[in-house]
Design a protein around this nucleic acid. Structure first.
Length: 353
DNA sequence: AACTCGGGGAT
DNA sequence: ATCCCAGAGTT
């Protein structure tokens, strides 16, 4: 047994080696901490930073976010993934303005009641913003605790996760909660990294059972998952006489919910599908090379098919759900990563014309 | 308790 | 190519 508690050693390490210059730590503002915590769900810090900077520059406070159009919020989320986070963030901002007079709530129940905020994110926000004592259990904490206690049951199982919550609660100190919360995440992100943990520099190594086992990298244990299936789709890049391309808004929920994308069809007669479904006559050109887009649960093989509109533009195709998009002048819409990439390729073709 | 939901960095 | 990341919501 070590003399000092885990939290005490962790805080001493944090005072020397913690990350204190992250953009959302420039000042202790619940709004900024909330936005950062949502962006950081299942997303690495280095990926989030430029998105966070742009988002805060455009929406510096909860009022500006609440008043924004969803299309613009999704636009600033384009490429970040998990777009339900953006929809929930927008809706939660409106509820904070309406139900909490524009002030971020300080009660745990009120915070978890906000869409997109669960047990761990609520704990992190309240700990980091208001120094309230709540445990968190994100990927970093799971890894640190699973190694420290050499937990050999899968962490992605219910029972293990519940015991990890108990350990997280037990280790959370009575004071300096904000620093401790940042400290255990920083340790997990740097010293106690997923690969090649640097145990030499770890303040917990004296009584870490994972380190004692000799193979700390074997923790945490995860249940094997089945291999990801492959799906296929065709994205129709229909261009009119002016070089504009047809985009349609996807359904508000589900995959890429609320984002704008190309009409998609399965394999078959593309021209016939287009006439029956969209009421448009087109002539297709030779397909572009297939591109694979990988999700956590399946791969999507995308075949981009450029096509020309035959005949005039149908007035019915200009409405709230469809638009003839000018690739030379991108506007503020949410786009999935592959659609954004294809639009940029279309634009570079326009440039050479 | 198991699925669904993105994209990218690291390996 | 796989793994996993400051997880939450739905079924």
């Amino acid at each position: 047994m070590s003399k000092a508690s885990l939290s005490r050693r962790l805080l001493a390490w944090y005072d020397r080696h913690g990350r204190k210059t992250l953009p959302w730590k420039r000042k202790r503002d619940a709004y900024r901490i909330w936005v950062s915590e949502i962006m950081l769900q299942q997303t690495q810090v280095t990926t989030v930073i430029p998105y966070f900077e742009r988002f805060i520059a455009r929406f510096p406070n909860v009022q500006s976010l609440a008043q924004a159009k969803l299309d613009e919020v999704l636009h600033l989320w384009t490429g970040l993934g998990y777009y339900a986070r953006a929809r929930n963030l927008h809706q939660a901002a409106q509820r904070i303005v309406r139900e909490h007079a524009g002030k971020f709530p300080r009660g745990f129940e009120a915070v978890t009641d906000l869409p997109g905020v669960g047990r761990s994110t609520a704990g992190a926000i309240l700990a980091l913003a208001f120094d309230q004592r709540h445990p968190i259990l994100d990927g970093n904490v799971k890894r640190v605790l699973a190694r420290y206690h050499a937990i050999d049951t899968p962490v992605n199982k219910r029972a293990t996760e519940e015991s990890l919550w108990q350990l997280a609660e037990k280790h959370t100190p009575r004071s300096r909660i904000a620093d401790y919360t940042q400290a255990i995440m920083d340790l997990g992100a740097t010293v106690c990294a997923r690969a090649k943990p640097q145990c030499t520099g770890c303040p917990l190594r004296t009584d870490c059972r994972g380190h004692r086992s000799g193979t700390p990298q074997d923790f945490p244990v995860r249940a094997a998952k089945q291999k990801t299936p492959v799906k296929a789709t065709h994205m129709l890049m229909i261009r009119d006489a002016r070089g504009r391309v047809l985009l349609a808004r996807r359904p508000p929920a589900g995959l890429w919910g609320g984002l704008w994308g190309f009409p998609e069809c399965a394999d078959g007669n593309v021209r016939q599908w287009c006439r029956k479904t969209l009421g448009l006559n087109i002539c297709t050109e030779s397909p572009w090379p297939m591109l694979r887009h990988s999700f956590s649960h399946f791969h999507l093989d995308i075949t981009p098919i450029p096509a020309r509109l035959v005949g005039g533009t149908d007035r019915a195709m200009e409405n709230a759900e469809t638009v003839w998009y000018n690739v030379r002048r991108p506007d503020r819409r949410g786009l999935s990563a592959p659609v954004k990439r294809l639009l940029e390729q279309l634009m570079s073709i326009e440039e050479t014309n």
